[in-house]
Amino acid sequence: MNGYVSLGYGVTLATLAVYTLRLMARSRALSKVLAPELAPRTTNSGAKTEGEAP
């Protein structure tokens, strides 16, 4: 196995893996922020206007 060739394949696979992991980590972090709010979201907008009315 040649050094340069393995380096080329290694860099490619590693970069794609790192980018993928970063995407997943970012989505997990965002889901944590959005998830508690997500379920009642559609009803929430209606409920909010009622709640704010008085």
């Binding site: 340069y4 380096l7 080329g8 860099v11 490619t12 970069t15 794609l16 980018y19």
Partner: peptide, 16 residues
């Protein structure tokens, strides 16, 4: 990302 990889793999090929 792909452009960076193009430059990287090309460079690695060019060296030898």
């Amino acid at each position: 990302v792909f452009t960076a990889l193009t430059l990287a793999t090309g460079s690695i090929w060019g060296r030898p």
